[in-house]
């Protein structure tokens, strides 16, 4: 079994669910950068799903893993069908075979019943009081990473300088114990290489002072990265000082390092079309099921800070969340990747 060696510092992400527009730019940026080789067709280290929803892999929240009272909980290995996607299409048949209208573009590989974003924009509730929001997810680079501990080959470790959970692919034997142990189900299997793979936090970029692709590409200005102990950084301020950014499913016990600013929503409508001022469109109980009891406080803080701005008063929280300059998202990892000569041996 692998052992967790704690790192000196910890990198963390924050996503503002009020600003995420579900555009998938982060997931496509990640996919294009890291998962284009054979064997990675079905992989999406970064995913954005509509909540409430079954997510990816399908119903991952019911699959177990993580820790209860410090003891590892058994977890399920998601099947390829549950991950879904991995689609390829009959482009040749449609465009070049001369069959005309008798052949339309169809999936010829991958899951028939699910995809990484299958239930997009479905959500819950009843019209007109329906609701949904987007939840970007990647490996949480946990402080107590169940995956690291579960690996029989010691292939996983936390980087001592930044806490990213890394995989030595030369050592990994594809045992997939990590994938069972991870409660977030963010580890994929590469059948071509016979190993597991997951988000490495764009480690080679971090080494060069460049923010991960998901953060740097986000057009919604909804994502931040930074060291959790950097008191002046946006991440630390949102997580530690203002406590408006919370981890997903903290009860799973892995101390995740991706944090979320919970979504607010307009009040619901009464049957006569008037505003139900005291009502909740997104039930607080649902938010608590994702972000824990503290979410109520976070929502209250957000509302109070928004009110301050409406009254023309200053608000540090709102200034951070607005993100006047996009470089503020990068936590100091603001080097332009275009100016770096990248090579496969890592020299910059």
């Amino acid at each position: 079994m692998g052992t967790i060696t704690q790192s000196k510092r910890q990198l963390a992400w924050v996503f503002d669910l009020n600003k995420c527009i579900g555009c998938q730019t982060c997931s496509v940026a990640c996919k294009v950068l890291w998962q284009q080789d054979k064997g990675t067709e079905h992989m999406w280290w970064m995913t954005v799903n509509t909540q409430p929803g079954r997510g990816t892999p399908r119903d991952y929240e019911t699959m177990g893993g993580g820790y209860k009272d410090g003891v590892a909980t058994p977890g399920k290995l998601p099947s390829p069908e549950e991950f879904g996607g991995g689609w390829d299409y009959n482009y040749d048949e449609v465009l070049r075979s001369g069959k005309g209208r008798t052949a339309h573009l169809e999936k010829i590989a991958g899951s028939k019943t699910w995809g990484p974003n299958w239930d997009e924009d479905e959500g819950a509730g009843e019209f007109p009081n329906s609701y949904f929001f987007y939840l970007p997810r990647l490996c949480n680079h946990c402080t107590v990473p169940g995956c690291v501990e579960a690996c029989p080959n010691n292939a996983l470790s936390k980087d001592p300088e930044n806490g990213l959970v890394l995989r030595n692919e030369d050592v990994c034997q594809g045992a997939q114990m990590c994938a069972q142990a991870c409660p977030y189900k963010k580890i994929y299997f590469n059948p071509s290489l016979g190993i597991s793979q997951h988000c490495i936090g764009c480690f080679p970029r971090i080494e060069q002072g460049v923010a991960p692709a998901c953060v740097r590409q986000c057009p919604g200005r909804a994502a931040w990265i930074g060291f959790l102990d950097d008191d002046r950084g946006a991440v630390s301020k949102l997580v530690n000082k203002w406590k408006v950014a919370l981890p997903l499913h903290a009860e799973w016990g892995t101390k995740p390092n991706v944090f979320y600013v919970p979504p607010l929503a307009p009040v619901p409508l009464n049957p006569d079309g008037t505003f139900n001022e005291g009502g909740e469109r997104i039930p607080l109980s649902y938010l608590k099921s994702l972000f824990g009891e503290q979410v109520g406080g976070a929502v209250d803080t957000l509302k109070a800070e928004m009110d301050k701005r409406r009254r023309g008063e200053a608000s540090e929280v709102m200034d951070i969340l607005v993100m006047y300059k996009w470089e503020e998202a990068l936590g100091g990892f603001d080097r332009d990747p275009a100016e770096i000569v990248w090579s496969t041996n890592g020299a910059g």
């Binding site: 998938q24 997931s27 496509v28 996919k31 294009v32 999406w44 996607g85 991995g86 689609w87 390829d88 299409y89 482009y91 573009l105 169809e106 999936k107 995809g115 990484p116 974003n117 299958w118 997009e120």
Partner: peptide, 13 residues
């Protein structure tokens, strides 16, 4: 619209 990667970000049809 028919790009494989983008198709994989929704229903794919």
């Amino acid at each position: 619209m028919t790009n494989n990667i983008l198709l994989n970000t929704h229903r794919g049809e």
